[in-house]
Simulated assay, not measured.
Amino acid sequence: MAQTAGFSLFGNTDRHHADGKSSKFNLKTLLDFSTLQPRVQNHLKNVYTCLLGATLCATLGVFLSLNDWLNYPRLAVFASMATSIWLFSIDFNARTQMKCFGLMSATALFTGIYLSPLINLAINVDPQIIMTAFLLTTVIFVCFSLSALLTKNRTYLYLGGLLGTGTSFMLLLSLMNLFGRSQLIFNINLYLGLALACGYILYDTQLIVERANNGDMNYV
């Protein structure tokens, strides 16, 4: 009896693998966003298009600064702060959406300008650092965004408090390291910042979806 049951069990397993349905990778399943409402899907397209535009503007800012056309990084810091405050003071609607997009693009451009000294330093050390960082950042962003979008329950929204606490802790460590100059604190801040950045991708993605479900279509 035991042998018969054993053969029956393995026989079912073989047939199960022979079908190839459970073990076969299906890309359509990975990209299935049917759980999201059509208006939410359209909103996400606007959000990621806006993000792509901001990335291109920041890249343009770096290019202009490195070629000494707009090489004013200190001035760009204050300019980005001014455009950010102006952007947050505007109510997003159909009449102001182009103005908001323009301010966001300007903020990204100024951000690229004041980050150009850091980019230039990385290029002088090893030009491959820039491309490696870009590719790894893209992979991390895509993977964590898909994880947040494909999760039916909005459980990542509970990360908000933990992420806020971690950010405050990082700020405290940074202030301490202004006086201590500790390599250990620097490394803790570095890897903690990486972990928090991944957490914010999960949290912000689900927050965008939840706000869109509640009628907030501000994609800027």
Results as ranks from 00 to 15, higher is better:
Phe92Asp: 06
Gly20Phe: 03
Thr55Ala: 09
Leu27Arg: 11
Asn153Leu: 06
Ile130His: 10
Leu163Asp: 04
Leu178Ser: 14
Leu190His: 09
Tyr203Arg: 04
Thr35Tyr: 10
Leu31Gly: 15
Leu150Met: 11
Pro127Leu: 06
Asp68Val: 05
Ala94Ile: 04
Ser80Arg: 04
Asn124Ile: 00
Ala122Met: 13
Thr59Trp: 08
Asn120Glu: 06
Lys21Arg: 10
Thr55Asp: 01
Asn46Phe: 03
His16Thr: 01
Gln128Ala: 14
Ala58Asn: 07
Thr165Asn: 12
Met1Asp: 14
Ile208Gly: 02
Val47Glu: 08
Leu163Val: 02
Val62Pro: 06
Leu60Gly: 05
Leu149Asn: 03
Gln97Arg: 15
Lys28Phe: 07
Ile113Ala: 02
Cys143Val: 08
Phe134Val: 11
Leu149Lys: 03
Ile130Gly: 13
Asn218His: 05
Ala106Pro: 06
Val209Arg: 00
Ser84Ala: 15
Leu109Phe: 08
Val47Ile: 05
Thr4Trp: 05
Gln41Trp: 00
Tyr156Arg: 03
Ser147Val: 14
Gln206Pro: 15
Gln128Asp: 10
Phe92Glu: 02
Trp86Leu: 02
Ser23Asp: 11
Leu207His: 08
Gly180Lys: 05
Thr138Pro: 09
Val220Ala: 10
Gly11Pro: 07
Arg15Glu: 11
Asn153Pro: 11
Thr59Tyr: 11
Leu44Lys: 02
Asn120Ser: 11
Ala106Ile: 00
Met1Leu: 13
Leu66Cys: 12
Leu9Met: 09
Tyr72Ala: 10
Leu121Asp: 14
Ile188Glu: 02
Leu118Trp: 11
Val142Thr: 13
Thr111Leu: 06
Asn120Ala: 13
Ala197Leu: 11
Leu52Gly: 15
Ser182Cys: 00
Met81Ile: 15
Thr4Arg: 14
Ala148Leu: 02
Ile129Leu: 10
Gly20Ser: 07
